[in-house]
Design a protein around this nucleic acid. Structure first.
Lengths: 219, 219
DNA sequence: GTCTATATATAGATAGAC
DNA sequence: GTCTATCTATATATAGAC
């Protein structure tokens, strides 16, 4: 195994576990058993190392998502929401082929990236995969034609919150579920659970058409 | 205004904006125009400063939540989910009285605390307000008697994700909503929106009773 | 209570020998 | 490509004068 690969593998392990800011280049190189200076030699900077770690997954995930969106487009009917969300499962599970336990690792990385809102990552993803993201958004909007666009905007971010949070805490949550309810959840079941939840939230009638506080018994 | 208060006010401003780890004592003391060493004199350490900042809000929020739970208990009927969630709005809005814009600031702080998962905060909250948290959980479980407990566990965390994420990104999201849809959202509307979303997710039929992939057109 | 000065630790990055 | 040694910056925390 090359030095470069040793760095990448160790970095993704520590990044996904501790976050990007909380992982020092020193901890990576010592655990990977390579020299500290080799990170800058091979990657230039910590930022570029982070991008390289993410790119290994994004380069598999994004084309797979694009392909699913194409399949949906060929159906020649209004795409429904559950179909769209479920179509995201396969691309994520495909990440298992990138590295052992890849889907789980990527979800953790994704969540950490979101939490720490690394500006350079946002730019990086948008420049490289902006068209796929736009396409997903277009499909999403067309899947809920009865909702005002601003409603779609809000619900999408509510849903994203559930997904990111679940991804980031997946290890802790599955451990708790096993300890308290003897329930062994895999990555696939977890994704399906959260998808079911957010799809139901999306399917709710428009907030703008209902009375928000019908039950004022206690207020 | 005392030095201690100047530190608290400035700290909460920077913490809520940049997060705890990303805010140095130096940036706080220089912005508050007090001496660096005064933080350790008045609070002992950065950890204790963080706890003091949170405590100003928690000491108002938690008793208010407890009171709402009491009111729900006196209704003498199965508490419904929407009622329970809506009951949380008033306590949060009460935080406006702690400091100007307090509800918004607290939500940001809460989200950052969750993201950075500061171990000492978790302990601190559990020790001081564990009974209120337990009581909320008990009420939640009794509000959805048709769901298996493990389902409640999962859905609660999915819901929490939506809430935390929305709280943490509230400024960015409301700014986008105003720019793109000319929609001016206040804190109250935002909370109600996300509550409506997660209540719908909670109200969905149990995942364990439905076929998860009824629509396999594309997989 | 408030200040200066400093101890101590840890970051990311790089120069230059090999 | 790999290494040692070091630069530079920044962090929390504290000792001790006032």
């Amino acid at each position: 195994m090359t030095t470069k690969d040793k760095i990448l593998d160790t970095a993704e392990l520590l990044f996904s576990d501790l976050g990007f800011d909380n992982t020092s280049l020193r901890s990576i190189t010592s655990k990977a058993d390579v020299n500290l200076a080799s990170v800058n030699y091979h990657f230039g900077s910590k930022k570029e190392l982070i991008q390289a770690v993410m790119e290994r997954y994004l380069s598999v995930l994004m084309p797979a998502i694009d392909e699913q969106l194409s399949k949906i487009a060929t159906l020649n009917r209004e795409p429904d929401l559950t179909l769209l969300f479920e179509a995201m499962v396969e691309p994520i599970l495909k990440l298992e082929s990138v590295r052992p336990n890849g889907a789980h690792t990527f979800m953790q990385l994704f969540a950490k990236a979101y939490y720490e809102s690394q500006g350079h990552m946002k730019k990086f993803v948008n420049v490289r995969y902006g068209t796929v993201l736009k396409r997903f958004n277009t499909t999403l909007v067309s899947a809920v034609p009865h909702l005002p666009k601003r409603e779609v905007f809000w619900r999408w971010h509510f849903a994203l919150g559930s997904c990111v949070f679940t991804m980031g805490s997946s290890r802790a949550l599955t451990d708790m579920a096993e300890a308290d309810y003897q329930q062994r959840m895999g990555v696939a079941e977890l994704i399906r659970g959260v998808i079911h939840f957010v799809a139901a939230g999306f399917a709710a009638p428009s907030v703008e058409n209902i009375e928000l506080y019908p039950n004022r018994d206690i207020a």
